[in-house]
Design a protein around this nucleic acid. Structure first.
Lengths: 239, 239
DNA sequence: GCGACTCTGTTCGTTAGCGTACATAGTCAC
DNA sequence: GTGACTATGTACGCTAACGAACAGAGTCGC
């Protein structure tokens, strides 16, 4: 039981931490702090000061840009392949987006100071963080273009698949309202689109739960962005 | 005349180069190569290998994400406040977007090797590049949200203002067709919107030339993204 | 079980932007 | 100046998505 526990809460479930050489990992290990990341938790507010970086293990976090009128749009998602708080070592220690947990779970965090010390060694940690930042920028570019050119249905499919890829089962636990918030569209639009997908037998859902029945079918309805994003994500994972 | 020439072609017209401490700048100086960047020139193709980084002085370059069907969208613009080719030192040396010159001019470039050597000193050059990368990410996030929520008119105003800010006069030299390509909308949409702006007395244009008559009015029609972007850009310039 | 609440379904009119098609008007090479 | 080309103007129908408004249905606390 203890063994299972320690496996479940192994920081190396996060692929970035897992990719660190043993000596670096050992240095960090003592400072890693397990944190619960419940659905809806906001790790960073837009413009806020960062005190930690977060390495999700089972949680999924969504980065949003919030407009003046309150409208928002997801610009990237971060699961156990990534890290939150890169702006800490990129220059300013404030972030331009909000980071909110969209699938509850756990993660590890590291204090600003510890992270900076390690980053400033200009060794493997820095390499890894920069490479991840690059992948994140690709994801952001794609989101920008996707928002311009693709339909809500395509985007919903893409989003479901990307989220599913970061989860063990084939069920997502969130409401249509939340998804609408992620994609920056009306809730009614999601209701309608999800209804269509259900009629086609690709998914089934009940209040707050979505089950994917036909993965391949969903991929066929998603825009190209899914495949590209997936590949980029796998590359990160492979590191 | 020679003095004017050397002023015109001073690498320090690029704010990043200007922000380098004297010793670093002196090291780089011998390796800086003046290049003409004519309208339409493509510095990097999406997925291509980078051999140089480019520091625009008078040119403006647009980063595009290209979709499978050929549709595209600008994800960020880079003028003399920035640099092109950051993916070089971020990990991979390929880029996920296309960099195309949208206002002809000049710039300086640096060979991959020289840039990497300086970057790897983990000194001021690295600091500067990372800070710029951070600013670029902000711009990209905003573009993503702007594409989702703002109208073509708002975006056109924003784009005109941001481009104008990087130019000496109040006239832009480009066709509606090109602008449409930048924003990822139909050419007809630009014709119509530009017509409206002209009727309101904010701009005037003739085939391939747009003159801004009423800056403040244009700002009033632009989305919030302009102000935010402008501020971010000034911050970069202030460095 | 009851009530309060939140999520989901559905409708209706409206609008922005798309795709298509074609006409007019600059511009440039010769 | 002539002709070829490219840029711009305009019109028409169409669709996706919006905004608002409300009805049902699931869930949770008590």
């Amino acid at each position: 039981m203890l063994a299972i526990q320690s496996l479940m809460y192994d920081p190396r479930q996060n692929h970035l931490l897992a990719a660190l050489p043993a000596d670096v990992y050992d240095r960090m290990f003592a400072h890693l702090e397990l944190v619960a990341m419940p659905l809806g938790d906001v790790l960073y507010e837009s413009g806020g000061q960062l005190q930690h970086v977060y390495f999700p293990t089972t949680a999924i976090v969504s980065l949003h840009y919030i407009m003046e009128n309150g409208a928002s749009a997801e610009i990237a998602g971060v699961g156990n392949e990534g890290v939150l708080g890169i702006s800490l070592f990129m220059g300013g220690n404030t972030t331009s987006s909000r980071a909110a947990v969209c699938t509850g779970g756990h993660g590890y965090r590291l204090k600003k100071q510890q992270m900076m010390e390690e980053f400033n060694r200009a060794g493997p940690m820095m390499q890894l963080m920069l490479r991840y930042t690059q992948a994140l920028m690709t994801q952001m570019s794609q989101t920008a273009a996707c928002n311009r050119h693709h339909s809500v249905e395509q985007q919903l499919c893409r989003w479901l698949l990307l989220t599913l890829d970061r989860l063990p089962g084939n069920e997502l636990t969130l409401t249509q309202e939340l998804i609408a918030g992620m994609l920056g569209v009306r809730r009614e639009g999601i209701t309608e689109t999800a209804g269509n997908l259900q009629r086609k037998g690709l998914i089934s859902y009940r209040r707050g739960h979505i089950t994917v029945l036909n993965r391949a079918g969903l991929e066929a309805h998603a825009c190209e962005c899914y495949q590209v994003n997936f590949t980029a994500c796998s590359a990160r994972r492979a590191t």
